[in-house]
Nucleic acid binder design. Structure first.
Lengths: 340, 340
DNA sequence: TTTTATGATTTAAACGTTTAAGCATATATT
DNA sequence: AATATATGCTTAAACGTTTAAATCATAAAA
């Protein structure tokens, strides 16, 4: 019905110039030497007419939208929605708003999202990059828009980023399994060339080696994001066969763990006696698996806050050198990993 | 480094007017009678210079931001993050982008978020409203901005909304428990005056009554959002005491269920023999509770798609009468509810 | 009295678009 | 030959802000 009230409305209502109103509204009366009585009137009518500034117009003028674009693999994944929540809170504390998009681990969708967000002039990106998106990230940087990588990263891309030490985290988990007498330790990873996953696999292999266990190719399975359930069912079936039967499992993400645990549940295998388990991340489900699941916990709080902090820093100081925040991952031991 | 390319850049580059470039870029050459050769040149340089339209400027002109503001209680709650994902996909299919905020069930935060989103000129709101926000929703409607309520609603507010039939869903769940021989059926609900929760409680009571079970006040517990764990631990402790001991539990949301199940897990009570359970919503954890949890499933797919559809309809036809989409809830039976 | 501050307010341009209206020039219709 | 129509392009205003610069009083200093 009624159009929104603009500075102009206040101005004409009082018979003064728009400029004057702008100064008062923005508390620049001092510098602009606005008369105290008229300032008072302006303030009063602004309230009367319920003036609300048009942030779009402000943005056009200032070139700042106070918006952060968040791109993750899937916002409905509890790991990412947890991060999203932290980022939302932290961003809003600083007057920013978050628009989000899910890439589904697809470079194409990722590019689409970047374009959309770019055209909307977001002030910064926080991205959990999908595979093969180095060039996309580099392109953003080249056009001088702040980018913070979260959870994942690219060795070839100098960027602000927040993540854990994946190699070490995986090493620690697998080392724990080995030190507790497990000798046939399998790993379920994502099918991706992304370094964070590669490093988790490297950590796994290194821990095996350092514990005198010869790595077997058949122990390391990778599931594709697009048909994760199918891949996991197939892989688990094989690894739980009597001939191959492994005595421990390390899951590289919470999603992989949840899907795998379903198969284990159906298989009748006893955790932790016949099979020890350690997962990555956290998940409500871990508490309820009949043998509560041990996991490497990443603090989403630190990840999210760190990401926003880096983004704001970068907005403020476009030329400062890159910062990596490495947050600590810690092993949370429950029952599934066997005795300690 | 390099500023973004604007229509002006293309125009000066070719020595033509901005207008001409605008027409070509927007494929209005026909109506605007642009010469074919110059159109070709414009298109070429647009690509060469990698022109990307400034959506902020477009928005200022058009009054449309192609943005939907989503307000939920907590984006990290899997129910809401699931809905967010659907809304994201559906919105983007239609050229919209989603900005989100979590109200934490606080009317104050809700108002803050609305103001922020309003000033950013969102084209529509999709809101899972918090308690005591009727007036906020009404205010939005009064200023003629499209609002769709999701999951929750207010009898006193005529609005587009998408939700299940809460009374019936709760009735069905509790009726199932009663029909299977449970006679002391407790319910864990949220402490709120929101109608959807009231109706779930009403459905619970009605099902008791219709099954000849006298409702006892002590059976119906409510936990406050702010200290849910504490409230639940206290309530469960009491209800599982031998004197009062109930033989079935109905949980009004997935969060309530997860917290309660933790207590049950520790209590040593046998589900479903000593205690039958039905929850609301879905959760990874339900699959892994030692006695897989039966639940009333709401299709977040339908909820999310419906909400976006209503929002777009309302944007297109501001004066059309309100629509309510009532999506079906269905009882998914597992083991926790006992034999069928 | 003239100059110079000082104070209060307005003008104008800009951000990047869109779009109605205007202006030439060429071609077709009387 | 005069007029209408078509074609190709530009001007100008607008969306709602911000902000440097200009204007114009009036008061204080010379």
């Amino acid at each position: 019905m009624e159009k929104k009230v603009s500075l102009k409305d206040i101005a004409t209502h009082l018979g003064v110039s728009i400029t004057l109103v702008s100064y008062v509204i923005n508390n620049k009366e001092k510098e602009a030497r606005v008369g105290p009585e008229i300032a008072e009137k302006i303030r009063k009518t602004a309230i009367e007419l319920n003036y609300q500034p048009n942030l779009i117009a402000k943005s056009l003028k200032s070139g700042k939208t106070n918006t952060i674009g968040l791109i993750v693999a899937d916002i409905s994944n509890p790991f990412f929605s947890g991060i999203a929540r932290i980022i939302e809170d932290e961003a809003r504390k600083h007057g920013y708003v978050v628009i989000f998009g899910s890439s589904d681990e697809s470079a194409e969708k990722s590019q689409d999202l970047m374009n959309v967000f770019l055209n909307r002039q977001v002030d910064a990106f926080i991205i959990a990059p999908a595979e093969h998106t180095e060039s996309q990230v580099k392109a953003l940087q080249k056009s001088n828009i702040p980018v913070v990588l979260i959870d994942r990263y690219f060795p070839s891309v100098k960027a602000d980023c927040v993540h854990i030490n994946n190699f070490q985290a995986a090493y620690q988990a697998v080392d724990h399994l080995a030190k507790n007498g497990r000798t046939k330790i399998a790993m379920m990873a994502y099918q991706t060339t992304l370094p964070h996953m590669q490093e988790r696999m490297d950590g796994y292999k290194a821990a095996l080696r350092d514990n005198g266990i010869r790595f077997r190719k058949s122990w390391l399975r990778q599931a594709a994001y697009q048909h994760i359930t199918k891949d996991i069912v197939a892989a688990m079936k094989e690894l739980l066969e009597p001939e191959l039967q492994v005595d421990a499992f390390f899951f590289a993400t919470n999603t992989l763990a949840v899907e795998s645990l379903k198969v284990i549940n159906r298989s009748g295998i006893k955790v932790p006696d016949e099979l020890a388990i350690i997962s990555f991340d956290e998940n409500d489900a871990f508490d309820f698996f009949y043998s509560p699941v041990s996991y490497m916990s990443q603090s989403i709080e630190e990840l999210g806050k760190g990401a926003v902090q880096l983004a704001l820093d970068r907005i403020r100081h476009p030329r400062k050198k890159n910062t990596s925040i490495v947050v600590e991952a810690k092993l949370v031991l429950r029952e599934s990993s066997g005795r300690r």
